[in-house]
Structure formats: structure tokens, C-alpha cells
Design a binder for these strands. Structure first.
Lengths: 161, 161
DNA sequence: TAAATATAGTTTCTTTTGAAATTACTGTTG
DNA sequence: CAACAGTAATTTCAAAAGAAACTATATTTA
């Protein structure tokens, strides 16, 4: 796979050396995070796009519903870290594909209980090992200890904010 | 700051126990990456949105142009990890704000040389320490060694793909 | 050097995304 | 129990982002 050109390939020619303006984007943690995120999410997207032409939100919703036998849309919102509008659209498009069934929620008439159809579950089961494979591929250069450490540190950042 | 509800707050009720469908989203590395990324980028966005009502792409372009005295749009694309359309729009809106100046590129008539205006440089200088502060805040819970390790591991993932 | 091809940057069009308004129902209170 | 406030989900509207087409200039090649 071709690597993107790196920051260092282009000279930076600082305007001045005052402490305030001496800012180096490639060393800026949020920038590194964005590059890192893009790289990971693109690798995953290749799988569900190539295999089924799915949208990111479709995969995310299916990944959650495939695990369980019943969630409400609100639970999907919590679990997916997606907006409720996005979840609503994910449900609509997965239903349209015939991968999702819903029944009414006796406990709350405003809500409903969602579950994958047999077809949807099949798609999920087909994708899971592929997703595991990409995960391995992404983390391929890291040792088990490094993987655990990376996960731990990411969690620490999230929990701290 | 309020933490989002966590996956574990909602029972997962596995449908079956077959190896193939036994998939746990919160343990899925790309999912963790997304949650991590969102958390970091939202913290940064709060600064430039609150201070100047800037768009993400405006901040990214200014962050690069503020560092240097001259880049072409194409160099901005490489450095920012943004699409060329996005960069084009960033240039347009920063120019409209009066934060960016451009002159023709003698080496290539299709291109031009961009630099921040005095005003743009002032905004940049004002934002830099704030950005450094958020960076510290985000990484506040981590030791220096942990920060270095996190950066190293993220870079390793990016370089490996 | 004229035609063909490639590249830098912008514009247009479409898709994706989220905020705000809306609908339908639930729970609470006078 | 009727009015009111609150909540789940959807729809509508507006903003953000990318793909493809387009313009203008540069480079290649016949």
C-alpha cells in the first residue's frame, strides 16, 4: 500500500522563532490522532464497502444488532456513539435491505425493538471474520503487549476527558 | 465533563455462542479508535469554534500556513491530510476573513503562493497557546512516558498500513 | 512546435451529517 | 383525569465533505 507524503517531505521554513508561533503541526497530538483515525477507519471501510456497498453507519448499526437479539433505537444511539438521526437512517436503510426486523415495544409505544433478520445475521456473520482480519492487519506491526498498551492509553484519554 | 454512557451499561444478550458471531464491538479496535478520535477532535474544536467560530478545515489550513511563510494549495493538501476540494474551500474562506494573502507562483502559473496576513498570523499566534493547552488537557491523565508511547504506537499503526 | 496528455486548482453536484422542528406517546401534577 | 412537561424517534433543513466535471496552465511527444 502506498503511503501518503509526510509532513517532513516539505520544508517548513519557520517565519520566526518566537515561542508562541513555533508550532509544529505534525507533533500536534490531535493532528496525529486524525491521521491515525483516518488510516484505521479507511481500512475497515474497504471491507464493508467492497463486500456489500454498505455505508459506515449501516455497518456500525449492524455490528451492534448482530451481537444481540434486541435493542431499541435509543440503545443503538448509546452503543454506537452515533447521532440519533444517523441511527434512525441506519435503521431505515438496513430495513430497506431486509436485514432488520422490528416489533413494537410493549414497555414504550414510542419506541420499538430491533433485531437482525436471518439475512442480516448472515451478512453480519460473514463480515465478522473479515473485520477481525482487518483488525489483525491494522495491528500487524505491533506485539500483543503493544496492542494492549495502545488500547489502554486510548481508553485513558477518553476516560480522562 | 460528563462522560458518555458506556457499552457495558446496556446488557448485550448474545444470540449465540458460535465463534463467528461472537463479536464484541467495544473490544473492536476501530470502534475504540473512533471513540478516541471523536473525543480528541471535539476538545480541539471547542477552542477554535468558541474563539473565532472557525470551521475545522479553516483551523487546519491556518495551522499549517501559520507555521510557514509560503505554501501552495497542493502543499497544503499534502500537509493537512485534507482533500483538495476542502483545501480550496479553506483557502477561500480564510481569504474572505482577510487572514490569507496569495501571490502568483512564478514556477507554475496554475498555482499560487499562500501566506497568512498580519491579521491571520495574529489569530494563529493567539490560538497556538490555547491549542497547546487543550493538548495538555487531553493528555493530562498520562505521564510523559505514556504520551511518548501512545504517539509511537499510533505512528507505528499508520506507518504499517 | 502543434497536438495530445497531464496537472493545479476550482466549481458543481451529490452524499453524508447534524441541529432544530415535529410527531407520537409517556409520565406527572393540579 | 385533563393539562402539561418530558422523552423516543423521525422528518426537515442546513452545513460539511467528497466525487466528478471543468478551467487554465504545463509538459510530453510526434
Amino acid at each position: 500500500m502506498k503511503r501518503d507524503a509526510q509532513m517532513k517531505d516539505i520544508p517548513t521554513c519557520q517565519t520566526g522563532t518566537d515561542a508562541e508561533t513555533d508550532f509544529d503541526l505534525p507533533d500536534f497530538f490531535p493532528y496525529q490522532t486524525r491521521v491515525f483515525y483516518k488510516c484505521v477507519s479507511e481500512a475497515v471501510a474497504r471491507v464493508y464497502v467492497d463486500e456489500y456497498g454498505m455505508k459506515p453507519y449501516e455497518w456500525r448499526a449492524l455490528a451492534i444488532l448482530g451481537m444481540s437479539n434486541s435493542y431499541t433505537p435509543a440503545e443503538l444511539v448509546t452503543l454506537s456513539s452515533m447521532d440519533k438521526v444517523t441511527v434512525s437512517r441506519a435503521i431505515a436503510s438496513l430495513s430497506k435491505r431486509g436485514w432488520l426486523l422490528s416489533r413494537s415495544n410493549k414497555k414504550d409505544g414510542r419506541s420499538r425493538i430491533l433485531r437482525t433478520s436471518a439475512e442480516g445475521q448472515k451478512v453480519f456473520s460473514h463480515l465478522v471474520p473479515k473485520m477481525r482480519a482487518v483488525e489483525q492487519e491494522i495491528l500487524g506491526g505491533l506485539s500483543q503487549d503493544e496492542i494492549s498498551e495502545l488500547r489502554r492509553l486510548m481508553r485513558k484519554v477518553v476516560d480522562g476527558s
